[in-house]
C-alpha cells in the first residue's frame, strides 16, 4: 500500500456465539473519530473468529462506512449487523493505524 493509504484488513466474523463480544469506543465528534475496539470478550463471536484485535479501528461494517457516525450510531449499526438474520456473518474492515 502507498504511504497515504494505511493497511486495512477485511475480517469476516461468523455469528458463532449468541453475542458479538466486542466493546468499542469513539465516533464522530470525539477524540477517537472512528470506533476502536477496546475489549474482546472470551467466548463471543469476535473472539471465536480470532482475527479481530484490541486497538484496531473499524473503518466499515458490511460495507457501510463508520466515518462521520457518532458513537451511538456506529454502535447501533454494528448491533443491527449482528442481529439481522439476513447474514450469518458480519464483515469488518479494520486497520491497525489510528
Amino acid at each position: 500500500p502507498g504511504l497515504l493509504e494505511p493497511t486495512s484488513t477485511l475480517v469476516r466474523v461468523a455469528k458463532s456465539a449468541s453475542t458479538l463480544g466486542i466493546a468499542i469506543e469513539g465516533g464522530a465528534n470525539t477524540r477517537q473519530p472512528l470506533p476502536r475496539i477496546v475489549t474482546i470478550q472470551r467466548g463471543g463471536s469476535a473472539h471465536n473468529c480470532g482475527q479481530l484485535k484490541v486497538g484496531q479501528v473499524i473503518l466499515e461494517v458490511n460495507g457501510a462506512t463508520m466515518r462521520g457516525r457518532e458513537h451511538r450510531d456506529a454502535a447501533r449499526l454494528i448491533a443491527e449487523a449482528f442481529k439481522t438474520k439476513e447474514r450469518d456473518h458480519v464483515d469488518f474492515l479494520v486497520t491497525e493505524f489510528n
Binding site: T19, L20, G21, I22, A23, I24, E25, G26, G27, N29, T30, R31, Q32, V38, T39, Q41, H71, R72, A75, I78, A79, F82
Partner: peptide, 15 residues
C-alpha cells in the same frame, strides 16, 4: 492539534 484536545472522550459500548 488544539482542536483535538478540546474534543470530548467517547463513551464505551459493549456489543
Amino acid at each position: 492539534r488544539e482542536k483535538r484536545l478540546t474534543l470530548p472522550p467517547s463513551e464505551i459500548t459493549l456489543l
